[in-house]
Design a protein around this nucleic acid. Structure first.
Length: 909
RNA sequence: GGCCGGUUAGCUCAGACAGGCUAGAGCGCCAGUCUUACAAACUGGAUGUCGAAGGUUCGAUUCCUUCACCGGCCACCA
């Protein structure tokens, strides 16, 4: 059989994914067991404009591990893929392209034509991220791929809107909103970023009407004073108490404005008096409402000053106006002072333009009402379960406790058009279709609201809309809802997670998912967040190319929910692991002739060696750990267990111990038995690894002799597919039924053998023996069981220590083999000792030093242990088993010290 | 301002929820090796007052308090 020496990930990756997809392995229908439990995940839909970044790769890896794991356990498994239309991002991108290619704006070509182009763009380029997901090995059901602007999902959006409108949760009206002067649209509070910025705090003086007195107000935005309609003070502020109810003359404008008392004002800050601009500040808007103040809009939607700002200012940019206002105040002698001040500035998340709060008529959703049910659920039952629970359950709860109305409408063209129509007299008709609206209005002369909905409005429906809602009898909705887990990043817990819970509970009466797994954040090697603008992102595809997808997935799975600095070394080490697996399998395959890898498990137990019993025990221990780890979302632990089992136990020890039997020249039952067991362990290990390393494991599994559908999980027995490891059953360990699979005795016996071999190897190195030099070993022990095991494994021990000159040991307990003086010796557990006679090679002085060193180390350890045991309070208060444990350790250490002392004595002076 | 996290070997990270195991892994480092699967390997080895200071305890890297530095989420202080 020809097998290359190194694993080439590329060809395996291309080969297997295409076949899995073609044969429908990812679809839940592959499962033929009508009684099978269900496991469903919907993907957080990436933006159509996006391309894969490490964060995606991380989330997808976690989801794929979970999905493949459950699939192999026989669950009816669905991982549903799809993309988001990403309103603003996509529109901006296509606009930019239009400008670049044809020098046109969207207004030049009109709404209809523009949207047609966006669709065309989506068809052409929107598939990039889904192609990249295939590269990752994501076992998503492509036949159920969804897009937030699909016909059905659009229907869901309208249903959501109409139902909420009918329930009084959605309303249209004026409100103060975040306005982006560049993108020309309203934005929700979650689509803006707050940034700290060094700026100035201007202290302006407003004269009191009919008095010499002036009131100072502090502001970071002097230009808004042109729209001031009051000054507010705290009602308990003695300094201003007498002024409340009086009037100020607004400088420049000459307008008379009242002084009002409002609890909102913090007397400690600034001057204790606040200028109130209801039209351009959310707080002032609220104060204005409370005191019935007029709203004077002095800044328009382009961030230019309006006519109401006065002829002098009208048309100026807001920042030019700021300079000019300050100059004016200075001229008027009303500028008290200017101080350096750091404050938060709000910017558009997309374009970075400073947001202008404006009063505007928009559509709003009363989130507080929708949030009530999810809030109750998390408070009372801690559902959904967040992983990690801390701090995310709190993040989620806090958000639900402080819900504000959600600005739904966007002045964009790309997105779900608001299902509201107006008649000629301004009457509003909200309806599922235009026909319905016409029927309601009793006229054909209706105009649809030009605005579209916030992208997150459709995202909020994702788990139900992708499964078929609003069709109440949609089969997928019945089968797969609620989903098992949502895997996402922490920054959209409020934006998205909470809202899916709201819609799920409102429309389906149940939580959208049982668990929420929050992935960690991947930083660059300097601890900086990866971002396109910084250009410090690591491209997952580049990493795939360099190290292979499977190796990358292991790193990502290990990262799980931990924040991590990306490091190629990590991937390299898992690339090496992949290669290790490849070569171990290569060894097994090169020695597979005559093997009967029925996969039926572990036949002919009577022929087993200690190594066989041991590896089987280690295997099931690993299977148990890995199952537990995945169930508990502890992917790091799962990967560690797999890595160490495969590399340390299987490769370093099991293959080495069985090598002689497996590679024997003659075809005997012993050889074929050894080969069969070796292949069986390999096959089972590949299954255990498969959810993490789908490509490599499939590639190797396909090459194993005798693999077929009979190895499939019984749920996939009838599946019409090429036999594949992804449909085999995942190795299980049941505490109830499989206790015998873990063999404590075999493990403890192997520990002794491993210690023996390691000590001899250590002696070899310390004495500078060449690896090729053959030695003799003498082993003395009183332990009958050890003697018995040694009898069975002496050949293997001799091979692994290169003891070509033989190994001598007592025939029975109570007998001691005499050790020549010129020997290197070491103490083992249980008072056993090993010696390597090296006539002529031993420097007695050095050997004494070596043993003395070892004895000192052991004595130090014994001292520590005994100090504790001598403490009566410890013996009295510590749990009995702790004390016993320590006594045993003390006894073992004591035995070693004694043995080492005897060795020194034997060495003489 | 509120809430929360991190600080363990040169680097990237486990361990800590349920205190006691000689504190681990990978990479890197030192020495040696082509030992018939693998030099992306093998064998052996060195490396940490577990951020600082207190406290609780028979016992603290782990629990509590304070502090320092780094970071996150939320928030209407002009």
């Amino acid at each position: 059989m020809e097998i290359p020496k190194t694993y080439d990930p590329k060809q395996a990756e291309e080969l297997h994914y295409a076949r899995w997809e073609r044969e429908g392995c990812f679809a839940p229908e592959i499962n033929g067991d009508a009684e099978a439990p269900v496991y469903a995940i919907v993907i957080p839909p990436p933006n159509v404009t996006g391309s894969l970044h490490m964060g995606h790769a991380l989330q997808h890896t976690i989801m794929d591990v979970l999905t493949r794991f459950r699939r192999m356990r026989g669950f009816r498994t669905l991982w549903l893929p799809g993309t988001d239309h990403a309103g603003i991002s996509t529109q901006i991108m296509v606009e930019r392209q239009l400008k670049k290619a044809e020098g046109l704006t969207r207004h030049d070509i009109g709404r209809e034509d523009f949207n047609a182009r966006v669709w065309k763009w989506k068809e052409q380029y929107g598939g990039e991220i889904t192609r990249q997901m295939r590269r990752e090995g994501a076992s998503v059901d492509w036949s159920r791929e969804r897009f937030t602007m699909d016909e059905r999902l659009t229907r869901a959006v309208r249903e959501f809107f109409v139902r909420c409108y009918e329930d009084g949760l959605i309303y249209r009206g004026p409100g103060i909103i975040n306005w982006c002067p560049k993108d020309q649209t309203a934005l929700s509070d979650l689509e803006v970023d707050k940034e700290s910025q060094a700026g100035k705090l201007y202290y302006l003086q407003y004269p009191v009407q009919g008095s010499e007195r002036r009131v100072s107000v502090a502001t970071t935005r002097p230009e808004t004073m042109l729209g001031d309609t009051a000054v507010a003070v705290n009602p308990n502020d003695e300094r201003y108490r007498d002024l409340v109810g009086q009037t100020l003359v607004l400088p420049i404008m000459g307008r008379e404005i009242p002084i009002v008392a409002d609890e909102f004002v913090d007397p400690e800050f600034g001057t204790g008096a606040v200028k109130v601009t209801p039209a351009h500040d959310p707080n002032d808007y609220a104060i204005g409402k409370r005191h019935n103040l007029p709203q004077v809009q002095v800044i328009d939607q382009y961030a230019k000053m309006t006519a109401d700002a006065g002829a002098e200012f009208a048309g100026l940019d807001r920042y030019e106006a700021r300079t000019k206002v300050v100059e004016k105040f200075e001229d008027l002698g009303l500028l008290e002072k200017v101080a350096d001040y750091e404050f938060a500035i709000t910017k558009c998340e997309r374009c970075g333009t400073v947001i202008e709060p404006l009063i505007s008529t928009q559509w709003f959703l009363k989130q507080a009402e929708l949030g009530r049910a999810p809030l109750e659920l998390i408070r009372e039952k801690h559902e959904p379960r967040f992983v990690p629970e801390n701090p995310y359950e709190k993040t989620y709860t806090n958000w639900l406790e402080n819900l504000h109305d959600w600005t739904l409408s966007r002045q964009l063209w790309w997105g779900h058009r608001i299902p509201a129509w107006y008649d000629e007299s301004g009457g509003v008709y909200v309806a599922r279709t235009e026909e319905d609206a016409k029927a309601k209005a009793g006229t054909d002369k209706l105009t649809q609201d030009p605005d579209v909905l916030d992208t997150w409005f459709s995202s909020a429906l994702w788990p139900i809309s992708t499964l078929g809602w609003p069709d109440e009898d949609a089969p997928d909705l019945k089968t797969f809802y609620p989903t098992a887990v949502l895997v996402t990043a922490r920054d959209i817990i409020s934006l998205w997670v909470s809202r899916m819970m709201m819609t799920g509970m409102k429309f389906e009466g149940r939580k959208a998912f049982d668990d929420v797994f929050i992935t960690g954040t991947i930083f660059d090697k300097h601890g900086q967040r990866m971002s396109k603008t910084k250009g410090n992102g690591v491209d997952p595809l580049g990493v795939f190319d360099k190290y292979g997808v499977d190796a990358t997935r292991l790193v990502l799975a290990s990262i799980g929910s931990t924040d991590t600095r990306w490091n190629d070394n990590q991937v390299e080490s898992y690339r090496n692991f992949a290669n290790k697996i490849w070569n171990a399998a290569r060894f097994c395959l090169l020695n597979s002739e005559g093997a009967d890898m029925s996969g039926k498990g572990w036949a002919h137990a009577e022929d087993w060696t200690l190594a066989d019993r041991w590896i089987r025990s280690r295997f099931f221990r690993t299977a148990r750990d890995v199952n537990e780890a995945i169930n508990g979302y502890d992917f790091h632990q799962a990967v560690q267990s797999l890595y160490h089992f495969f590399w340390d136990d299987f490769c370093d020890w099991y293959i080495e111990l069985t090598k002689a039997d497996v590679t024997a020249a003659e075809d005997t039952p012993a050889r074929s038995g050894a080969r069969s067991r070796l292949l069986t362990i390999l096959e089972q290990s590949l299954r255990l690894l498969h959810p993490f390393m789908p490509f490599l494991t499939e590639e190797l599994w396909q090459r194993l002799p005798g693999v077929g559908k009979d190895l499939h999980h019984r749920a996939y027995e009838t599946a019409d597919v090429t036999p594949t490891i992804m449909l085999t059953s995942y190795p299980q360990f049941s505490k109830k039924f499989d206790t015998r699979k873990i063999d404590e005795r075999a493990e403890s016996e192997m520990r002794a053998i491993i210690e023996l071999i390691s000590r001899v190897r250590n002696i070899r190195t310390e004495l500078g023996l060449k690896p090729s030099e053959e030695i003799e070993i003498i082993l003395n022990t009183e332990d009958e069981r050890l003697l018995e095991v040694l009898g069975e494994t002496s050949g293997q021990i001799m091979r692994l220590t290169r003891a070509g000159k033989g190994m001598r040991r007592p025939g029975r307990a109570g007998v001691t083999i005499e050790v020549p003086r010129a020997s290197a010796r070491a103490a083992l557990a249980g008072g056993a000792e090993v010696a390597v006679p090296l006539e002529g090679l031993i420097d007695f002085e050095q050997e004494r030093a070596r043993i003395t060193r070892e004895r000192e180390k052991q004595e130090k350890e014994l001292q520590k242990t005994e100090a504790q045991l001598l403490n009566p309070q410890f013996v009295e208060r510590a749990p009995a088993e702790k004390v016993e444990e320590l006594r045993q350790r003390a006894a073992d250490t004591g035995q070693r010290i004694k043995a080492l002392g005897e060795m020194l004595e034997a060495l003489g002076e």
